[in-house]
């Protein structure tokens, strides 16, 4: 089983499920723990949903390149899209003092990724948004 899985994900939700299924088959082959598989699923779902919502102004279907890499005690998940420049790390975290009546329904996904992954880095590289998320396998 390869240490790297490359996926090209179209920006619509039917393809999202198919890609997550392929990723899960790869996680299983790498014998990753239930906790790591959960976190990786969350990163894939939240980041791809975020790209669908914010990266493109048109209604066309775009490709997002996703690369999963199992290396040196960590799982690296890399996303590349050619949408408009958008650094999700600049989004403000949810207000901790909100109440149920006043809280906004959105904006949580990236917050969850930042809190639960070990590192999240954003770069604009050659006209593409590149997001690299690392999950340590240490406590697996």
């Amino acid at each position: 089983m390869s240490e790297i899985l490359n996926l090209t994900v179209e920006t619509n939700s039917a393809r999202l499920a198919e890609s997550i299924n392929r990723a899960n088959a790869w996680f299983e082959a790498h014998d990753l723990s239930e906790r790591i598989v959960y976190l990786a699923n969350l990163v894939l779902e939240e980041v791809l949903t975020n790209i669908n919502k914010y990266a493109f102004d048109d209604d066309e279907i775009h490709d997002v390149e996703v690369r999963l890499r199992h290396e040196q005690g960590q799982l690296l998940i890399e996303f590349k899209d050619d949408g408009k420049e958008f650094n999700p790390l600049l989004s403000p975290p949810p207000d901790p003092n909100r109440s149920l009546d006043r809280s906004e329904a959105g904006g949580l996904g990236i917050h969850l990724v930042r809190k639960l992954a070990d590192t999240v880095e954003y770069q604009r590289e050659q006209g593409k948004n590149v997001l690299r998320v690392r999950i340590s396998l240490g406590d697996a």
Partner: peptide, 30 residues
């Protein structure tokens, strides 16, 4: 995921608007 949390919040607000409540129990792991 956050989509599930969003749905819970929508439903909790609706229940509360009708004088009720939504409570959660037996959460586990991640």
């Amino acid at each position: 995921s956050s989509a599930g949390l969003r749905s819970l919040m929508v439903v909790a607000k609706d229940a509360r608007a009708r004088g009720g409540e939504l409570v959660c129990c037996a959460l586990k792991g991640v």
